[in-house]
């Protein structure tokens, strides 16, 4: 098991290197001047050159790349050009909103998706199944931003029950923070709930038709116990895989959702950093997101391997 984990960790390295190099090249190919954005429209050319020198932007590309890569390997992602603070600090400060948003949307996804999927599987072929699966396809087809706008229109602008946008940190109280997060979490969670419902249903159907479930039934166990105890537990293995996928999708979806609801999270940070050509910040952010993505996949694989030893060989 340990060697499996080590092997998997080592295999992360080339992927991360790929990502790092890719981001660096992409950003260097992108025209744009961070200095012009920082110093404002009236700055003199002399001053712009001086700041570029200060920031090391006039150095040869390869030198910039090696320097950045070396620092990154030591865990130093450099300083944001625009925000004038270490990239890791910028990321750390944005972690809370994004994490809260991601967790709450996962909660939304689980609490809607799982029961719907189970119910649909139990009622396979009946109107409940077909209806809920129809809605699920609709759910994955609806763009998150359109759902978000509809929610804003109804609950924020018209009814004024919840704020249109913004963020209150958890330190200001759970309810205050939740008030701001309800709409974004639903916006982001619904599509994942739909996805989860579809997956849960199909896995439940796989499992319900499996041998041991038939045995359990034959033993005269009550249907409910069969479904919730035997079947669901076994369906959880593939569902862990799905959870990994959903987490990754949420990170990507957070970009758009944070933009609509003006949430100061990692997604919005990234979009703004691209607009300001804040190269170290973009590099650092993408690298960290990619690392999280790869790590989540690793954790998923480890879980699966623990539950199913056959997987350790591959």
């Amino acid at each position: 098991m340990v060697s499996f984990i080590i092997r998997r960790l080592v295999s992360m390295i080339p992927v991360m290197l790929m990502v790092a190099t890719g981001v660096f090249l992409l950003l260097k190919l992108t025209p744009g001047d961070p200095v012009g954005v920082i110093l404002g429209p009236d700055a003199t050319e002399e001053r712009r050159q001086a700041l570029r020198d200060d920031l090391g932007l006039n150095d040869p590309l390869i030198l910039q790349y090696v320097r950045w890569l070396g620092d990154a390997a030591r865990g130093d992602l450099g300083d944001s050009l625009f925000l004038n603070q270490p990239v890791l600090t910028s990321l750390w400060e944005r972690a809370e909103p994004t994490l809260v948003l991601t967790l709450l949307s996962t909660l939304v996804a689980l609490s809607i998706g799982l029961p719907t999927g189970i119910l649909a599987a139990q009622n396979r072929g009946k109107w409940l199944d077909m209806g809920s699966m129809g809605i699920a396809i609709l759910g994955i087809s609806m763009p998150t931003f359109w759902l978000g706008l509809n929610l804003i229109l109804i609950f924020a602008v018209t009814l004024r029950w919840l704020p249109v946008a913004g963020y209150a940190p958890l330190s200001e109280g759970l309810w205050e923070s939740l008030r701001y997060m309800i709409l974004p979490a639903i916006t982001l969670g619904v599509a994942q709930a739909a996805l989860l419902a579809r997956m849960t249903r199909s896995m439940m159907l796989d499992v319900l038709s499996a041998e041991y479930v038939r045995v359990a039934r034959a033993k005269g166990l009550r249907e409910r116990r069969v479904v919730y105890f035997h079947a669901l537990r076994n369906a959880l293995i593939p569902l862990i895989n799905v959870a990994g996928l959903i987490f990754a999708a949420l990170l990507g979806g957070a970009v758009v959702t944070e933009q609509i609801f003006n949430i100061p999270g990692i997604g919005r940070l990234l979009i703004q950093a691209v607009g300001r050509r804040d190269v170290p910040l973009v590099q650092g952010t993408v690298l960290v997101i990619a690392a999280i993505y790869v790590l989540v996949n690793l954790i998923v694989d480890i879980f699966s391997a623990v539950l199913d030893p056959r997987l350790r060989q591959t």
Binding site: P14, V15, M16, M18, V19, G22, V23, L26, L27, L29, T30, P31, G32, A248, L251, G252, V255, V256, L270, I271, V274, V286, I289, A290, Y293, V294
Partner: peptide, 22 residues
């Protein structure tokens, strides 16, 4: 496939925005 893995480790929308910026 390492290159493909690398591409998949980007959030798709960010990658697309980056390419559009270039």
């Amino acid at each position: 496939m390492r290159v493909m893995d690398g591409l998949m480790a980007f959030p798709g929308i960010i990658l697309a925005i980056g390419i559009m910026a270039v």
